[in-house]
């Protein structure tokens, strides 16, 4: 796995700030690193990312957290959203069971309740305390960002 940068404490703080700005919650993240395509990855606290990146045919370290966007935002992966979603206070869309299924299947949804959402911004879609995924709030609907391979089949 080609690591571009293992993030130091200050750089992780920057990521936490982006998340706080977008989702209104403070996180204490550890062991983050970037790959060339501006993807952010997170590994367990005892995993030495530097060591493993040099191991022959190392294919993956930890899990994909999200992608850093130029506009000071992060497009969270489903698992990234699950980590953030537990504490998120804004840019959250609450859905019922039926809409949750629609969304998990990869469709846009039209019936939801917004908690402090900004238009054209990323929102975390939740059913009660469950994180269903990430989308973008558009005029009257949420655009679905769940990748095909991760959708409910």
């Amino acid at each position: 796995m080609q690591i571009k940068k293992i993030l130091n404490r200050d750089e992780i703080k920057e990521i936490e700030k982006i998340i706080e700005k977008n989702y209104g919650c403070k996180l204490n993240l550890k062991n983050l690193f970037l790959t060339g395509d501006e993807k952010i990855w997170i590994a367990g606290e005892n995993v030495s990312t530097e060591f493993f990146s040099s191991v022959r045919n190392c294919y993956r370290i930890g899990i994909y957290f999200g992608k850093l966007k130029r506009n000071y935002k992060i497009k969270l992966s489903m698992e990234g959203a699950t980590i953030v979603g537990k504490k998120a206070k804004r840019n959250v869309a609450i859905v019922d069971d039926k809409e949750a299924r629609e969304f998990a299947e990869g469709n846009c949804i039209h019936k939801f309740e917004c908690i402090d959402c900004e238009k054209n911004n990323f929102v975390i879609v939740k059913r009660n305390d469950d994180t269903i995924g990430v989308g973008i709030l558009r005029e009257g609907y949420i655009e679905n960002l769940i990748p095909k391979a991760r959708r409910m089949r």
Binding site: N31, F52, N57, C58, Y59, R60, I61, I63, E79, T82
Partner: peptide, 16 residues
């Protein structure tokens, strides 16, 4: 990779 990601198993390093 898919299963490790879905499980949220952050302490896993995958080698081939």
């Amino acid at each position: 990779v898919h299963n490790v990601q879905k499980a949220g198993a952050m302490n896993v390093v995958i080698t081939n």
